[in-house]
Design a binder for these strands. Structure first.
Lengths: 185, 185
DNA sequence: ACCTGAACACCGTTCAAGT
DNA sequence: ACCTGAACACCGTTCAAGT
């Protein structure tokens, strides 16, 4: 009880909010419910977050840090797959990070974090096209769009035929890699 | 005044809701505000839509029909660009269609409509990779991801250097096409 | 500094009526 | 059949207090 009154409320709120986000999505996340789960009044969160958006922004920031970490655990050739797998493992977090719900102009640090994940993919797919800047954008677009469309269930049948989401994703990314390989041959 | 009481309320609500969607986004769209703009009580919409989600679903359906129409106006090689341009021209509509806000499992006709836009892109990018099914998925993913990332402003600097969003998008899509061309040479 | 409780203006949704 | 008005249980946010 008294622990929350001693400076641990902010992380407690983030944890409670994170759970709501994962299970019900950002749209269902209310400050009041997070406060309830943290055992404080509906008003206590305002000591730690100026408004609802800034709590969502903090959750998105956690997500960007985790995404960067998971992508960097992989060898370069597998970073695209790591990106897709992150989205599949944390669908609601991914939607919060990239769903346009947050006014990114008000949170420039979030956009910077998002571009941190692009820097890695750039190297991974650098030879997708000639100009490396456009190639990097194409690489990020490819894995980002694939992640989104998988989350929306738009490849449901194809996934079944491929034996699972991950196997399907690997084949889609692999088909582009194959085109690149033939080009250099 | 009395016109709305004679069967024209449904389209009037869709029009009012569409305007709110375009200016403030799906999150800010309330049934009560749509009803207000249509000049009826906050409760009248329930005669035409069972709940808020089904109004959003109707707006998304309009979007999918428009997307399909605009994509089919272009020659095959330009359909990817048409897809991106649709997203840029109707950002909030695009986010509603693909932002995960709607429970697509409850609206199977929407998912069918979404896949209608893929059918065209499949032909347009059919030689991106060997297996045409995976190549089609890669093509849709590429344009879809590019559209999303452009809307989120993640390519802001690169866009400036390229002289505008559309020019940048064209170069990104072109860089993939260039890789394909080199491969067949 | 951090938290509580009352208050206000919004929602979505339901129900009982009105025409 | 279609619409209104009252009502209920939620929100985000602000303000005046409490410790």
């Amino acid at each position: 009880m008294s622990t929350y009154h001693h400076g641990a409320l902010r992380p407690a709120l983030l944890e409670a909010a994170g759970k709501i986000l994962e299970t019900d999505g950002a749209g269902a996340l209310s400050l009041r419910e997070a406060a309830r789960r943290a055992g404080v009044s509906h008003n206590a969160p305002y000591r730690h977050f100026p408004d609802r958006d800034s709590l969502l922004a903090a959750l998105a920031a956690e997500g960007f840090a985790l995404l960067k970490h998971e992508v960097h655990l992989r060898p370069e050739g597998d970073m695209g797959m790591a990106y897709v797998e992150f989205a599949l493992r944390h669908p609601q977090r991914f939607r919060l990070m990239f769903g346009g719900l947050l006014p990114l102009d008000d949170y420039p640090e979030l956009r910077a974090q998002a571009q941190g994940s692009q820097a890695s993919l750039q190297r991974a797919f650098a030879d997708l096209g000639e100009d490396s800047r456009f190639a990097a954008a194409a690489a990020w677009s490819l894995v980002h769009g694939l992640a989104h469309l998988l989350l929306d269930g738009h490849f449901a049948e194809a996934q079944r035929a491929s034996g699972g989401v991950a196997a399907f994703a690997r084949k889609v990314l692999g088909s582009v890699r194959a085109a690149r390989a033939q080009r250099s041959a």
